[in-house]
């Protein structure tokens, strides 16, 4: 899967390449952010930017998402909402976050931890999921998708 995940808090991804050889890339390389490294998006600033990025074995780093525009990072796990609409394919539910009402409703669709599903192309900004071969399609809004933690199956 090559589609770029959105840098939402909780997203984990592995750097594939930087897409360019500019000043920022050189900077990142020099502080040990190299292809193959797993990044975790910790949080975003109050106006949506910058992004705090954590990585194993070293202090976390603050970057601007605009400057990361050409970074390609393979999605490892994170909120469903971090996936662009084009990232169709098989995924597995890792965890449900949020309040009890929310978890109960999502679990009611059959989206329990461990369960696999297919992500279909979005429609009108809503994520469409199919859990079984002839199960009905489940539609989730952004808010719900932000609290459903998934990983590629």
């Amino acid at each position: 899967m090559t589609a770029r995940p959105v840098l939402l808090p909780g997203t984990q991804c592995v750097i594939e390449d930087f897409g360019d050889d500019g000043a920022l890339t050189r900077h990142l390389l020099e502080i040990g952010i190299t292809p193959g490294l797993q990044l975790t998006i910790v949080r975003r600033g109050p106006f949506g930017d910058p992004v705090e990025v954590a990585m194993p074995g070293t202090h976390s780093v603050v970057l601007r998402s605009g400057e990361l525009a050409s970074l390609r990072c393979r999605f490892v796990s994170g909120p469903l909402a971090a996936l662009p609409c084009s990232a169709t394919g098989r995924y597995r539910v890792r965890a449900l976050q949020g309040g009890q009402r929310h978890t109960r409703r999502v679990a009611g669709y059959g989206l329990r931890p461990g369960r696999e599903f297919s992500l279909l192309p979005c429609s009108r900004g809503r994520y469409r999921l199919r859990i079984g071969a002839d199960a009905p399609v489940v539609e989730l809004g952004r808010g719900e998708a932000a609290r459903l933690i998934v990983e590629p199956a």
Binding site: L24, H27, I31, H59, S60, V61, V62, L63, R64, E67
Partner: peptide, 10 residues
């Protein structure tokens, strides 16, 4: 301007 990269110290 240089790109913005800042380590968050403990």
């Amino acid at each position: 301007p240089e790109p913005f990269i800042m380590e968050l110290p403990p």
